[in-house]
Each structure stands twice: as structure tokens, then as C-alpha cells.
């Protein structure tokens, strides 16, 4: 079936995979730095006793309402993206082009859904960035997250194009791509817990 005797391929050395792992590590520090600042700000906020609910940290302005459903949906979407990305790897390893393509499409779609959820959260909260420490921090941290998600979407798009344009042999890129989405999900889980749940 082959049209030419192939030169021996370089052995699979997982450069892209290891490289993506390093990107993820660096981005962990990015998100971690943001969360560190967030918790520092929050820890330094004074608290007061609420008559009904015990101590309340006066950290989040009281007129801000976090759309939790959207945040939760966003988290779910992240988990789904992960499985989709892994599905793409799985299919590609089995030379199942159609499923791999489909999984990549789904990855892109669900990735966009996370982005959409983030936009929805921003528009719903209507926070003024100049309003204070919480507001500034909220935008900073979600902005960084969004930036990382956009990078992930670009990654997915690239992986998709490459997959479509190439043969079946781009498994290394696909698995590295899945790794990045795993990282994003982990990072968002942390952000979700700290920013949307604990606040």
C-alpha cells in the first residue's frame, strides 16, 4: 500500500508531549500565582459575624452575585472536553479517523462552551473592574484562565487541522493536546473551587 519505502522515522520521543507537560507546569505557576494572590487578599479581608450564617468575610462585595450554575456548567464542560480529547487519542491510536475527527470537533465545541460560560458569567455578574480588590482580582484570575482556555482552543484547532490534513500518525500531538486539556481542567477545578465556591 505504501507509495514509497519510508525512511525510518525518528523514534517516538514524545517531544510534544514533554513540551506540553512543561507548558502545563509553567501555566500551573501562572494560575497558582493568581490563586496565591487571591487567597492573600481574601485572608487579609476582615470578617464580621452575620446574625444568621456565622462569620462572613467582607471580601466579596455584597451586591455581586456569582452565577454558580454557569460556573458549574463550565466545570462540567471542562470534564467533558477531557474525555473528548482522550477519545480523540484513543481513536487515532486505532486508526479510526472518523471518530478521531469527531472527537476533536467535540473538543473544540465543548471548549467553546467553556468560553461561552465564562462570557456568560462576566455579563451576568457585571462587575466593574475598578470597583475594588475583589473585582480586579476576579477579572485578573478569570482573564488568565480564559487566556489559557483560548490557548487550548488554538491547540485543539491546530491538532484538528493537522489531523485532518495528515495521515493517522499524529498521535503524539493528540495525546499532548489531551494532556493540555487535562491540565486546564485541573487548573479550572482549582479556580472553580477557590473563586466560585469558596469565593
Amino acid at each position: 500500500m505504501l507509495t514509497l519505502p519510508p525512511a525510518p522515522q525518528p523514534a517516538p520521543k514524545r517531544q510534544v508531549f514533554v513540551g506540553t507537560a512543561l507548558v502545563s507546569a509553567a501555566a500551573t505557576m501562572l494560575v497558582g500565582g493568581m490563586l496565591a494572590i487571591w487567597s492573600q487578599f481574601r485572608a487579609d479581608a476582615p470578617f464580621r459575624e452575620s446574625p444568621r450564617r456565622g462569620p462572613i468575610k467582607d471580601w466579596m462585595p455584597k451586591d455581586i452575585v456569582v452565577p454558580e450554575v454557569a460556573a458549574n456548567m463550565m466545570l462540567i464542560a471542562f470534564f467533558v472536553v477531557c474525555v473528548m480529547a482522550q477519545w480523540a487519542v484513543w481513536s487515532a491510536k486505532r486508526n479510526d479517523r472518523q471518530h478521531a475527527g469527531m472527537a476533536l470537533g467535540m473538543t473544540l465545541l465543548m471548549g467553546l462552551a467553556t468560553l461561552n460560560a465564562q462570557l456568560f458569567i462576566w455579563s451576568q455578574m457585571g462587575v466593574d473592574v475598578r470597583g475594588g480588590a475583589f473585582n480586579s482580582m476576579f477579572y485578573a484570575i478569570t482573564g488568565v484562565m480564559t487566556f489559557l482556555v483560548i490557548a487550548g482552543l488554538v491547540y485543539t484547532a491546530v491538532a484538528t487541522f493537522r489531523y485532518l490534513g495528515r495521515g493517522n500518525s499524529d498521535v503524539p500531538t493528540l495525546s499532548a493536546h489531551a494532556l493540555y486539556w487535562y491540565f486546564l481542567t485541573a487548573a479550572f477545578s482549582a479556580v472553580w473551587f477557590v473563586v466560585y465556591v469558596q469565593k
Binding site: 501562572l30 480586579s136 482573564g143
Partner: peptide, 18 residues
């Protein structure tokens, strides 16, 4: 430093209050 610079540019460009 990216985080720090990001906060600083956020402050300078968008009047955030870090």
C-alpha cells in the same frame, strides 16, 4: 513575573486596584 506584570498592566490600562 507574568502574573505581576499582568496585574500591573491591568492596573495601568484598565484602572484595576491591585
Amino acid at each position: 513575573i507574568t502574573v505581576a506584570l499582568f496585574l500591573l498592566s491591568f492596573q495601568r490600562e484598565f484602572d484595576a486596584t491591585f
